[in-house]
């Protein structure tokens, strides 16, 4: 499924979207950035409550398909501008990480 299809299916908030056609092939949830870099796979949707600028760098290096800020977390202004500048798909949902991961996992199954 593409990032755009994921947005449509779950009514996600779009903070920054540079590659809506990117394929989402899996998912990872986590807030410790190095842990995420060690475990997340290329093409994952990454669910996190971290909202600082480093999230954009981690998303870029780990080559995830998109970042989804859960629990209604808003991106720091520096994260937003960095995501736009670097072409990171940055989305959001008011749902908890647990609920969002459950719904998204079901979509990919």
């Amino acid at each position: 499924m593409t990032v755009q299809q994921l947005i449509d299916a779950l009514s996600l908030t779009v903070f920054s979207l540079s590659d809506p056609q990117r394929q989402v092939t899996g998912g990872y949830a986590g807030d410790l950035l190095s842990w995420v870099m060690g475990r997340a796979q290329s093409g994952d949707m990454w669910l996190t409550i971290m909202s600082n600028q480093n999230v954009a760098a981690v998303a870029l290096m780990a080559d995830v398909a998109c970042v989804i800020l859960t629990e209604g977390v808003q991106p720091d202004p520096t994260l937003l501008s960095r995501a736009q500048e670097k072409g990171v798909n940055l989305l959001g949902t008011p749902e908890s990480t647990f609920t969002a991961a459950g719904r998204m996992g079901a979509l990919l199954a």
Partner: peptide, 15 residues
């Protein structure tokens, strides 16, 4: 606080 310091830096580089 920024999400680092998990003790994964060098292990990730090895991985």
């Amino acid at each position: 606080e920024l999400g680092f310091g998990a003790g994964m830096g060098l292990p990730n580089m090895k991985r």
